[in-house]
């Protein structure tokens, strides 16, 4: 009898809890281009977890696009609760120009607020007919390189910085030599797409170019989507440590009263479960153990933006801002 009443009580309690607090919660995650597949999986996992924890039905809405464009949309009023962008500079802009969060956002979560990292690799046609193995091979005469425009694509900025870091840090390298190398490299580019996905399509579907410089995750996705028998992934000897950071957009989250769930969502990205999802989607998880269990994400020396370029603010100002080094490469007569 007692057990029965206890059961009933429990059931009533559960029902009551269910009725009283099962609210519908929505989050808007504004992200960059290549993370579509990743966040689709993450959102499913986190919503399920959130449901068991709080009983609330969580829907995470996604908006994808070029990282810079997305940052601008948030500044212009797109109601993002969290942003998960390609580079820290773009979130800095949201803090500095939009005043939607405080400038110290990157200190709030572990590892520079970057739950997963990535790097830049080469995708070549099957069999690697041009024998491309490292950055120096890219500027052999006759090779055509496909890479997006650093002005409009976050991934392209990482690619540019990776090339630069290689040329500056190699034995006998210098900033001047790096500039010459990068200028030479962009002379081999026949198409500058506006985004990472556009470049992959140009290379994969349209058959333009001999090598695509792209995100590691994008390269694996291209293999999955367009056929493993068509392309090979080439890891250069060195590359760059690409850190795509995440942050809660304070003002929006407070306005929507979603801060708690937004913070939990971002923290979830560091959990074992999420780290495994990230690795499966070819991002490099921070968790060393999980990273080690994915040997396809090859170990290679990676430079960070801080050590070579003195941080994103500086890198942006020197290289990508109006009149910066990248513009100089395309100045008439400035060849």
């Amino acid at each position: 009898m007692r057990t029965l009443s206890a059961c009933l009580l429990g059931a009533v309690a559960v029902l009551a809890a269910g009725v009283a607090s099962a609210a519908d919660v929505t989050l808007l995650n504004v992200s960059y281009d290549p993370t579509r597949e990743l966040y689709k999986a993450i959102n499913t996992a986190f919503s399920a977890q959130w449901k068991t924890k709080t009983g609330d039905n969580l829907t995470v809405n996604m908006s994808h696009g070029g990282s810079g464009k997305q940052a601008r949309a948030v500044i212009d009023g797109l109601d993002a609760d969290v942003v998960t962008l390609a580079l820290a500079y773009d979130i800095d802009s949201i803090a500095k120009i939009g005043h939607l969060m405080d400038a110290g956002w990157q200190k709030r979560l572990p590892d520079n607020s970057t739950p997963y990292t990535s790097t830049i690799v080469f995708l070549v046609r099957k069999g690697n007919p041009w024998k491309i193995h490292d950055w120096s091979d890219l500027i052999k005469p006759g090779i055509q390189i496909v890479v997006p425009n650093p002005k409009t694509s976050g991934g392209a900025r990482w690619a540019y910085l990776a090339a630069w870091a290689y040329a500056e840090k190699k034995p006998g390298g210098s900033a001047d030599k790096a500039k010459a190398y990068v200028a030479e490299l962009y002379k081999h580019v026949p198409v500058l797409d506006t985004g990472a996905r556009g470049s992959t399509t140009t290379f994969g579907e349209r058959g333009i170019g001999d090598v695509l410089i792209c995100w590691e995750n994008e390269a694996y996705l291209a293999l999955d989507e367009m056929g493993r028998d068509k392309f090979d992934i080439i890891y250069p000897t060195v590359s760059i440590l690409a850190e795509p950071p995440v942050a809660v957009v304070d003002k929006n989250a407070d306005k929507h009263k979603t801060r708690k769930v937004a913070e939990a969502y971002l923290q979830f990205l560091y959990s074992k479960e999420a780290q495994e999802i990230e690795a499966k989607n070819h991002y490099r998880p921070r968790d060393a153990q999980i990273l080690a269990s994915h040997p396809e994400l090859k170990k290679l020396p990676l430079y960070s933006v801080d050590e070579v370029f003195g941080g994103w603010q500086k890198a942006q100002a020197t290289h990508f801002a109006d009149g910066g080094v990248f513009d100089h490469i395309y100045k008439p007569g400035g060849k």
């Binding site: 949309a73 500044i75 212009d76 009023g77 120009i97 939009g98």
Partner: peptide, 19 residues
Amino acid sequence: GMMGWFGPWLREHDIKIIF
């Protein structure tokens, strides 16, 4: 937009136009 002429006012009054 938020950086535009009417953006801040619209936001204060919770009126959404763009996005």
